[in-house]
Amino acid sequence: NITNLCPFDEVFNATRFASVYAWNRKRISNCVADYSVLYNLAPFFTFKCYGVSPTKLNDLCFTNVYADSFVIRGDEVRQIAPGQTGNIADYNYKLPDDFTGCVIAWNSNKLDSKVSGNYNYLYRLFRKSNLKPFERDISTEIYQAGNKPCNGVAGFNCYFPLRSYSFRPTYGVGHQPYRVVVLSFELLHAPATVCGPKKST
């Protein structure tokens, strides 16, 4: 009989979030998941669920729940959905087409922007091929755009693959930082360890 609440607040209220290319994953298990708490945590810009209804979450049980978190800019949030393409979905964080879970995003301009520009958040701009779903690539190998090998040196047709967002508070919403948490629900042929409040007794 599990009584402890799932530590969603640790994920959502973390002081620092990860850069999207090096997104963070927390496995959540053996706890009571009260998803209604999430609705009250922040004024969400996005709370979209796929393959599951957000209002039914509190009635369900899962084997595992994974919470992935990272920062992107406002106009990239739409890429965090099944079947999307674009720089983020292709080279940084890719959801599977049959994704079961929820994408939660909110504006973090007050936390993640600086007047002089916050350069701490990076994204991958160049990659030889698209990522597979939930693949994480943290390599910093020089990207070869031409025929000549780069031998690890940046220059003509040889690019450092990561680029930094420079978040400034005066930017338009599309270029402001957004914190994203992706909850993916895993149903294996194994005992369910993460249940809503109704199912945990």
Rank of each mutant, 00 (worst) to 15 (best):
N1Q: 09
I2Y: 13
I2T: 13
I2E: 13
N4S: 12
L5H: 10
F8W: 09
D9E: 13
A14K: 09
A18W: 03
S19R: 01
S19C: 05
W23C: 03
R25K: 04
R27T: 12
R27A: 09
I28G: 05
N30T: 04
C31V: 05
V32I: 14
A33G: 08
A33F: 15
A33E: 05
Y35D: 06
Y35I: 13
V37F: 15
V37I: 12
Y39V: 12
Y39S: 14
A42D: 06
A42N: 10
P43W: 04
F45A: 15
K48Q: 11
Y50R: 01
G51R: 11
G51E: 02
V52T: 08
V52I: 14
P54T: 10
T55V: 11
K56H: 11
L57H: 04
N58D: 12
C61P: 09
C61S: 07
C61M: 08
F62G: 08
T63P: 05
N64D: 10
N64F: 09
Y66G: 02
A67Q: 03
V71C: 05
I72Y: 01
R73P: 06
G74E: 08
E76R: 01
E76A: 02
R78K: 15
Q79K: 04
Q79P: 01
I80F: 02
I80M: 03
I80Y: 01
A81V: 04
A81S: 07
A81Y: 00
P82E: 03
G83E: 06
G86H: 01
A89E: 03
Y91A: 05
N92W: 02
N92V: 02
Y93F: 04
K94I: 01
L95F: 00
L95D: 00
P96E: 00
P96I: 00
P96W: 00
D97V: 09
D98Q: 08
D98F: 03
F99S: 00
T100N: 08
G101Q: 00
G101H: 00
A105G: 03
N109V: 10
N109H: 12
K110N: 13
K110I: 09
L111I: 14
D112Q: 02
D112N: 03
S113H: 06
K114W: 09
K114R: 12
K114Y: 10
K114F: 09
N118D: 14
Y119W: 10
Y119H: 15
N120V: 11
N120F: 08
Y121S: 04
L122V: 12
L122M: 15
Y123A: 07
Y123M: 06
R124I: 04
L125E: 15
L125R: 15
L125M: 14
R127D: 05
K128C: 08
S129K: 14
S129E: 15
P133R: 01
E135S: 05
R136C: 05
D137H: 01
I138N: 15
I138Y: 07
T140H: 11
E141N: 11
I142D: 06
Q144W: 02
Q144V: 06
P149Y: 07
C150I: 04
N151K: 14
N151Y: 11
A154D: 12
G155P: 07
F156W: 12
F160H: 15
F160P: 14
F160Q: 14
P161I: 02
S164W: 06
S164H: 12
S164M: 08
S164Y: 09
Y165D: 06
F167G: 05
F167W: 08
R168H: 12
P169A: 09
T170R: 10
T170G: 15
Y171T: 14
G172A: 14
V173K: 14
Q176K: 03
P177W: 04
Y178W: 13
V181Q: 00
V182S: 00
L187Q: 13
L187H: 10
L188F: 10
A190K: 13
A190F: 08
P191C: 08
V194S: 11
V194E: 11
P197L: 15
K198M: 12
K199T: 14
S200R: 11
T201Q: 14
